[in-house]
Nucleic acid binder design. Sequence first.
DNA 1: ATACATCCTGGAGTTAACTCCAAGTCAATA
DNA 2: TATTGACTTGGAGTTAACTCCAGGATGTAT
Lengths: 136, 136
Amino acid sequence: MTIKAVCSKFNVSPDTLRYYERVGVIPEVHRTSGGIRDYTEDDIKWVETATCFRSAGMPIELLIEYVRLFREGDHTIKARCELLKEARDLILAERRKIDDALEKMDGKIKVYERAVETGRLEWDDNSCCCCNKSKE
Amino acid sequence: MTIKAVCSKFNVSPDTLRYYERVGVIPEVHRTSGGIRDYTEDDIKWVETATCFRSAGMPIELLIEYVRLFREGDHTIKARCELLKEARDLILAERRKIDDALEKMDGKIKVYERAVETGRLEWDDNSCCCCNKSKE
DNA sequence: ATACATCCTGGAGTTAACTCCAAGTCAATA
DNA sequence: TATTGACTTGGAGTTAACTCCAGGATGTAT
C-alpha cells in the first residue's frame, strides 16, 4: 500500500508518516526495490496503533520506547506490559481532566442558555463555578 | 491573594499566570498600589476556569475569544453560549479519541499480561488490533 | 535604613510534534 | 524516450504554549 493510501486511511500527512518512521514511532516500513515505501499489513497496523494512541494525547516518546523494546525481542515483554499500563494511567488521568472540564462547561452552558432566553445571566453558585458574572 | 498563592492553589507557574493575563486568557488582574498582582475572588475564579479548561486541552485561542466577548458586555451572551457549545463538542471529540485508545490499550495489556505468565504473546485478532506480533 | 525575598516588564528561548522545502529519484503514460 | 507526477532524503522552519532571563521596583524583617 502506498504512503498516500495509508495517509487517507488514517487521515494523516505523508510528512507525518515519514516523521514517525524516522524517529521510531513505528518500525521501518517495507520498501519497493526502488526504495519507495510499500506498507504491509503489519506496517499498517503499526500506523493504526500509533495514530490512535497519538490522537489520545499519548506522547511520542512513549511510543518510541515501546517500539525500541519491541525490537529488542521477547525478553522485553514484561517491560512493554509495564509501559502500556503506565500509558493507560496517563490517558485515564487525561480523561478525568476532560470530565471535570465538561462538568464545568455544562454548568456554564446551562446558565447561558437561560440567559439567551431571559436576557440576563444568573449564576448559580453551587451548580457552576463561574468567574464570569455579568457585572451590574 | 498573591500570585504565588494562586499558583500553588492551581498548580501552575507564575510565568504561566502572567502569560495568561498578557495574552487575554483571563481578564486583567487586580493590583496593589505598587503594581503587584493581588488576585480577587473573581480573578481566582477566572484562573480556575482557565486552568481547568486548558488541562482538558481546550485551545488558548478559544479562551481568549471568550474573554474578549465577555468584555464586550451582555450583548455577546448568545455568542458566548455558542462558543461554549463549540468548545464542548471539541472536548467531547477528544474524549471519544481517548476512549478508542483506551479500548485498544486494554486489549494489548490483556495480551501482554497473559504473555508475562506464559512467556509468549498470543494476539487475538478480534479483541485487539495489534501490529506487534512476536515474530516467529 | 538596609538587606533580602518577591514581584514587575518586555522580550528572547524552549519543547513537542509536526510541516515545509530543495534537489534529486522512480514509475506510469503518451 | 520524454514528460509528468508521486516519491525520496536531510535539514530547516513553524506553531502552540509555555518558560526563562535581565534589569529594575516593591515589601517586609531586622
